[in-house]
Amino acid sequence: MTDPTDTELADRYRTALEEERAALLTASEDTGEGRKPVMLDQTQVGRLSRMDAMQGQAMEAALEARRHGRIRAIDAALRRIEEGEFGWCDDCGSFIGFGRLDSDAAAMRCISCAS
């Protein structure tokens, strides 16, 4: 099999990366309320309910951190597309492979270098 061209790679993955980025940003905006500090109002919320709310807030904050990490990875992949470096392993320079890119279009390393 011959290696794909930069244009073929960009055409195949740019839209998917941009759509995933937009979905992550939308999810981040939609869940902003869940990450706000939990206020203590013992007339309205009991101790266990507040603890549940705090745990929910912590989980939302952790999910938000993962979202931002994924957005950074997508942004890096989009930069690699613009620079003509997308799809090529950062370590060895070989083609990453369609199977790996189909699974994670933001992958920066081939399966050999990643393991």
Rank of each mutant, 00 (worst) to 15 (best):
R47V: 15
V38S: 10
V38W: 10
G34M: 06
A73K: 07
A27I: 00
A65F: 02
D90K: 15
G84N: 05
L63G: 12
I71V: 15
I71P: 09
I81S: 06
Q42A: 08
A61F: 11
M54D: 14
D91E: 13
E18Y: 00
T5G: 13
Q42W: 04
R67E: 01
A62P: 00
L9S: 04
E29G: 01
M39T: 08
F86G: 02
Q55W: 05
T7F: 02
Q44F: 11
A73Y: 02
D30R: 10
R47K: 13
R72Y: 09
R47G: 10
Q44K: 15
E19L: 12
T15Y: 02
A53K: 09
L9R: 06
K36R: 15
A77P: 06
D91K: 12
R66T: 04
E33Q: 13
Q44R: 15
T43P: 02
T7L: 05
M59G: 01
I81A: 06
D90E: 15
E20K: 14
A53G: 06
E85L: 12
G46P: 00
A65E: 05
D30G: 08
L48F: 05
G32S: 12
R80A: 03
T15L: 03
E33C: 07
A62V: 04
E18G: 00
Q44G: 13
T5D: 14
L78A: 08
A76N: 01
M39S: 07
D90C: 11
E83I: 07
G87C: 10
D11P: 02
A27K: 01
R66A: 04
T26A: 12
A73F: 01
S28R: 11
F86C: 01
L24F: 07
G34C: 06
S28A: 08
T7A: 05
R14V: 03
R50I: 05
A16G: 09
D52H: 12
I71L: 12
R72P: 11
E18I: 00
A23H: 12
R70T: 02
A23V: 10
A65Q: 08
R50G: 00
M59E: 03
R67A: 01
R66D: 04
E83W: 10
P37Y: 12
R72H: 13
A23G: 09
G84R: 06
S49G: 15
E85Y: 07
A73N: 07
M51L: 10
T43N: 07
A58N: 02
A27E: 06
T15S: 04
R70N: 05
V38R: 09
Q57I: 01
A61L: 15
I71G: 10
